[in-house]
Amino acid sequence: MKRLTTIGVLAGLGVLVLAGPAAAHVEVSADKTRAGATDVTLTFEGEAENPSGIKSERVVLPEGIAPADVTLVKAPKGWTFAATADGFTVGGKALASGQDAEWKVKVAKFPDGEQRLSFKTVETYADGEVSRWIEIQKEGADEPENPAPLVTLKPGPAPTSAAPAPSSAAPASAAPVASPPAATIQAEPAASTDDGSSTWWIWVLVALAVVGGGTFLVLRRRSKTP
């Protein structure tokens, strides 16, 4: 019985020793898990492993999310947020011994397409100890010893179909409209070239002149006779 009791205690201690580090992960969850989602709130939880207290958390963003697209929503009291070249850092006064770190950030937009987003995180304690949760979790593989926080995205909504392109074929020509027949313009009749009908009055004047002249000469002669 003593041997069995001793073996049971040692086995229990072994399980606790092995389970301790595995439980002290940094986890992340998202309020939206669709690819391409906007204004997504990420909640990080860093479990305390060192009794000196967590002092800071540095997160490396996955490809497709820029540091400028991340803003702080909530952090432990007294902690500040600072963007880095590849992610961001939250930190400040060390938390109480055994207190987990929780912080929230907002991401402007998730990448498009079904993806697994890994947020590598480096956790620093007040005594200088560093825990690196940076190992990428492979789909279908066993969890690594120090896994990076992971968000698995679902496919986004199907893209809307584009409007059909206009047909390149030329439209059928409309039936030609018959133009009305041109109006026939009648030429004005030419002036008559009959000199007899147009110059008769000239001959009348000539005759009157001859008669008048003859009468004048007769009267003149009579006036000269004694």
Score class of each variant (00 low, 15 high):
Ala83Leu: 08
Val17Asn: 10
Ala169Asp: 10
Ala191Gly: 11
Ala178Gly: 07
Ser192Trp: 03
Gly113Tyr: 03
Gly36Arg: 01
Ala209Val: 04
Ala75His: 02
Phe216Leu: 12
Phe119Leu: 06
Leu117Lys: 04
Ala82Gly: 09
Leu219Val: 11
Val73Lys: 15
Gly98Trp: 05
Ser167Arg: 09
Gly140Ile: 01
Trp200Met: 02
Glu57Ser: 13
Ser223Met: 10
Leu61Arg: 02
Met1Glu: 10
Val73Met: 12
Thr71Trp: 04
Pro176Tyr: 02
Val90Asn: 00
Ala94Glu: 00
Thr38Glu: 15
Gly8Leu: 13
Phe88Arg: 02
Ala169Lys: 12
Leu61Phe: 00
Thr43His: 12
Lys93Arg: 07
Ala11Tyr: 03
Ala83Glu: 13
Lys93Val: 02
Pro171Arg: 02
Pro76Phe: 00
Ala209Phe: 10
Val59Arg: 06
Val40Pro: 07
Gly212Asn: 09
Pro149Ser: 01
Pro171Thr: 03
Gly8Cys: 14
Thr6Glu: 10
Leu153Cys: 02
Ala35Met: 04
Glu123Trp: 07
Glu143Thr: 15
Val204Cys: 05
Pro157Arg: 06
Asp142Ser: 14
Ala183Ile: 06
Leu95Ile: 00
Arg116Lys: 13
Asp69Gly: 10
Leu217Asp: 10
Ala22Val: 14
Lys224Pro: 04
Leu208Trp: 08
Ser29Val: 12
Ser52Thr: 08
Lys109Tyr: 04
Ala207Trp: 10
Gly12Met: 15
Val90Gln: 01
Glu45Asn: 14
Lys2Ile: 15
Thr124Phe: 04
Ser198Tyr: 09
Ala163Met: 09
Trp201Val: 05
Val73Tyr: 08
Ile134Glu: 15
Thr199Glu: 11
Ala11Glu: 05
Ile202Leu: 12
Ala190Met: 09
Thr84Val: 04
Glu145Pro: 09
Ala19Trp: 07
Lys74Ala: 15
Ala207Lys: 07
Glu145Lys: 15
Glu49Met: 14
Ala170Glu: 14
Pro62His: 02
Phe119Ala: 04
Ile54Gln: 03
Thr199Trp: 14
Thr152Met: 08
Ile136Asn: 11
Pro155Thr: 02
Ser167Cys: 02
Thr160Asn: 11
Ser167Met: 08
Ala162Gln: 14
Trp103Tyr: 13
Glu49Trp: 15
Thr160Val: 12
Leu153Tyr: 01
Asp195Ser: 15
Ala165Ile: 11
Thr80Met: 00
Gln115Asn: 15
Gln186Ile: 10
Ala182Leu: 03
Leu61Met: 05
His25Tyr: 14
Ile202Asp: 07
Val90Glu: 01
Thr84Asn: 03
Thr84Cys: 05
Tyr125Leu: 05
Ser97Asp: 05
Thr152Ile: 12
Val204Pro: 08
Phe88Gly: 06
Glu27His: 10
Thr124His: 01
Ser197Glu: 12
Lys154Pro: 06
Gly14Arg: 00
Gly214Met: 11
Pro144Asp: 01
Ser131Thr: 12
Pro21Ser: 15
Ser192Ile: 05
Asp127Phe: 06
Pro189Ala: 01
Ala83Thr: 13
Leu217Trp: 14
Gly113Thr: 09
Met1Thr: 15
Trp201Gln: 11
Ser197Val: 12
Lys109Trp: 04
Ala163Phe: 08
Pro157Glu: 09
Leu4Glu: 10
Val107Glu: 05
Ser131Trp: 11
